[in-house]
Design a protein around this nucleic acid. Structure first.
Length: 766
DNA sequence: TGCACCGATGTTTTT
DNA sequence: CATCGGTGCA
């Protein structure tokens, strides 16, 4: 029956079987944490716990979805359905939908994203006549965010002399006023920002004991993943909810705490025992993910940190290869190196593109990598970055939806009231804004009553305003009767947005229109998906809620076979056979902003630890001597983290250069005379032939190669071939021509692989 | 009121 | 370099 228990190691099994009471699971990287979480829930259910009483907080919605599916396979779909699983933000956003009215928020409140929030702040600073160079909107917002994450309300702020003095010392004595006005404006707009979703939940649970009791009783078993990355606000919610039954299981790894900058507090995990003196601690220390070299290298790095729990991560996996370290001259060469290496490895070993990940510290670094991948026609996918939903045209469309759902949504209104242009300009908006402030009314309401209010708006403009109001109201009516897709189409057409975009025939303009089309398609897909589900809800409101709380890792792709590009932060929880960590330079990784204090530097180091431990079989580190930054070339030094790994786990190598460019500008590196020239491998490496010196020129695009004929038609369906690694295989299919010719081959070991014939080392047997 | 151009300004990391 | 906001002109 409980066969899943047999699939666990001792440490994992004990943790899974501990069903009651407070417990802390310290889970080293790659130690099967997700398995433990999943099976523990299964085990709870199998032991008679009603899934309805289980709350599981994960780091991404995708993780929740996957876990739910795995649980469903064990306990059945209907039981799995009543589990409550998701990120903190999405779970409590839902609760606030039904309970938020107690705090004065409409049921259809808007969730402001970072951009919206910043615009509100900017507006306040302007209205208060403050100097934007002193009160930088982003900084002010960060400050307010940190207040909220520490549960410091406006009132608490004014009761706290220290905070006020700190702001005064930073020449921003009016921070409190801005904070207050910001909270007021959000409230008037019926909007919450990300931090509010947690702060307001706290408020809800504190002020309304009956609500607290209700959810305490409902969530009798609580599990929190990535507990090391919870902030005080989240901690406080969990603590309140668990207070009655104390069946709380938190899982995490202090060595992987990487969100200190947004208020995460490692102390939550380090001091769990203080809150629950009779808690049980479980340690998962065996790593199943990575080679021994990778595990040891990571251990070496993290040993440089002072603040950490005692832990010994080990593995019984093979040593594997050393971590490859590569220096290039420029960032574009770094990109080229990475692309080339991925390409060659994929072709030689028959990997999927999705076996490769490229990790970087900052989003801007994706550029040179994208260029290099695109040039070789390699499929890739970027996680995060400027997300699709942040693009201007998409936000514009979404703003119409938002305003239709919640008329009070001020940021949405500001965005679209004059887009497409309908003759409502700055003067009018200023008048409306002032009236809204003076009468504590939403802007929408002011516009509604404008004819009676004597705002000095002329008759023509009044008519335009009225037309606008009518349009939004008609959308509202449609929302009640139509599904998301129908309204979306109707909105995009009747607002004239499509026409507006069609006017622009530049490539960017066309791309924008495509994006809108893609948005509509995704809404269509959403509608269809919901229709398939028995309890589906295809309303626009539901769609919008999903969109607002999407995490970077959430979006799925119809073609998953792509190289993954993402920041190290986004990579948390993921794993890949081959991982490239690029930009290993001082001031970049570790970030220049974080090298001044010990605690910040330690967070950078943990971040690097996370990066390295994503790799299953091979990790690569690369750095360049110069890099484009702000349109200027800057010199760079190798990251201190490389040294911290220790030479025994490293293999310094030089990029396989292709023929240097016509100008021969590639500095002194060609030929591989780097300062630390390639070191001999220490004897342990179990590798047969050290990295094959394949020097064949790779075609940059298919137009180049002159020896096309050499490679075509040598292989036919039905041929039996031999591969150095996979052994004998049968050719299933041949496609493409010339250098692009590929074959699908079913090998006796390794299954079916698709490989480019040009690069695969195949011997035709018959 | 609307549009076009110009200059300043900024890059950690994200729900 | 790329975006954004502000300014100045029609």
């Amino acid at each position: 029956m409980a066969d899943y228990l047999d699939s666990l190691n001792e440490a994992q099994r004990v943790a899974v079987e501990n069903l009651k009471g407070p417990m802390l699971v310290i889970a080293g990287a790659g130690s099967g944490k997700t398995r433990v979480l999943t099976y523990r829930i299964v085990h709870l259910i199998n032991n008679g716990v009603d899934p309805f009483n289980i709350l599981s907080l994960t780091f991404t919605n995708k993780a929740a979805k996957e876990m739910k599916n795995r649980i469903a396979m064990q306990v059945g779909r209907s039981d799995a359905k009543s589990l409550w699983m998701g990120t903190f933000h999405s779970v409590f956003a839902k609760i606030l939908r039904s309970e938020g009215h107690r705090l004065g928020f409409p049921q259809n409140y808007t969730i402001y994203d970072a951009q919206d929030a910043e615009r509100v702040i900017r507006g306040i600073i302007t209205d208060m006549n403050l100097d934007k160079d002193i009160y930088k909107p982003k900084q002010v917002l960060n400050r307010i965010s940190s207040f909220k994450n520490s549960l410091i309300t406006v009132k608490a702020y004014y009761n706290n002399q220290e905070l006020q003095e700190a702001d005064a010392a930073a020449i921003r004595p009016r921070t409190g006023e801005i904070y207050k006005e910001y909270v007021d404006r959000c409230f008037r707009a019926g909007a919450m920002d990300f931090d509010d979703l947690l702060l307001r939940t706290n408020e809800l649970l504190n002020r309304f004991p009956e609500v607290l009791a209700l959810y305490q009783d409902r969530f009798r078993y609580i599990m929190v993943d990535e507990y090391q990355d919870t902030n005080h606000s989240q901690y406080s919610i969990v603590k309140a909810l668990a207070a009655k039954f104390e069946n709380i299981c938190v899982v995490g790894d202090d060595a992987q705490s990487i969100y200190g900058f947004r208020g995460a507090n490692v102390k939550n995990i380090l001091e769990f025992q203080k809150d629950y003196p009779d808690m049980k601690m479980f340690k998962l220390e065996q790593n199943y993910r990575s080679t021994n070299n990778i595990v040891q290298a990571a251990n070496n790095v993290i040993a440089n940190n002072r603040d950490q729990l005692e832990k010994d991560v080990w593995t019984s996996n093979n040593d594997g290869e050393q971590i490859k370290v590569v220096r290039t001259v420029t960032d574009s060469e770094e990109g080229k190196y990475v692309a080339t290496t991925i390409f060659d490895t994929a072709m030689e070993e028959g990997n999927n593109w999705s076996d490769f990940a490229i990790l970087y510290r900052t989003n801007m670094q994706s550029r040179s990598l994208e260029d290099a991948l695109r040039r070789r026609d390699m499929p890739y996918r970027i996680f995060g970055g400027l997300s699709f939903y942040q693009r201007k045209e998409i936000k514009d469309v979404l703003s119409y939806f938002r305003l239709a759902i919640n008329h009070r949504d001020e940021e949405a209104l500001r965005r679209i009231i004059n887009f497409p242009a309908r003759g409502i300009g700055k003067t009018t908006m200023d008048r409306i804004t002032i009236a809204s402030r003076e009468n504590t009314m939403s802007m929408f309401e002011v516009i509604l009553r404008a004819p009676q209010m004597n705002l000095g708006i002329n008759a023509g403009t009044l008519r335009k305003l009225e037309a606008f109001i009518l349009m939004i109201k008609s959308f509202k009516t449609q929302i009640e009767t139509m599904d998301a897709f129908q309204i979306a189409e109707s909105v995009v057409k009747s607002t004239g947005m499509v026409k507006e975009l069609q006017k622009d025939s530049t490539p960017e303009g066309v791309a924008r229109l495509d994006n809108v089309q893609e948005l509509i398609n995704s809404i269509k897909k959403f509608t269809e998906d919901q229709a398939e589900q028995a309890d589906g809800d295809a309303s626009l409101t539901t769609f919008m809620e999903d969109v607002a709380l999407l995490t970077d890792a959430d979006k799925d792709d119809n073609d998953p076979n792509k190289v993954s590009l993402m920041t190290v932060h986004t990579s948390k929880g993921l794993e890949f056979p081959h991982v490239f960590i690029v930009g290993m330079e001082e001031e970049l990784f570790p970030s220049g902003m974080s090298i001044n204090t010990r605690s910040e530097l330690e967070e950078e180091r943990r971040l690097f630890y996370v990066a390295v431990t994503r790799a299953e079989t091979q990790a690569y580190l690369s750095y360049t001597q110069s890099r484009y930054r702000w349109g200027k070339v800057t010199e760079a030094e190798p990251s201190r983290f490389i040294e911290e790994i220790g030479d025994e786990y490293l293999h310094y190598t030089t990029p396989r250069t292709r023929q240097s460019r016509a100008l021969g500008a590639s500095g002194g590196l060609v030929g591989g005379e780097s300062l630390r020239s390639t070191k001999p491998k220490s004897g342990i490496a179990p590798d047969k032939s050290p990295s094959r010196p394949i020097r064949k020129l790779k075609p940059v695009n298919s137009a180049v190669s002159g020896n096309t004929d050499l490679f075509s038609t040598q292989l036919n369906k039905g041929n039996i071939v031999k591969h150095s690694q996979f052994g004998l295989g049968e050719v299933m299919m041949v496609e493409g021509v010339g250098v692009n010719q590929k074959a699908s081959i079913r090998f006796e070991k390794g299954g079916i692989k698709k490989m480019l014939l040009k690069f695969s080392k195949l011997e035709v047997v018959r």
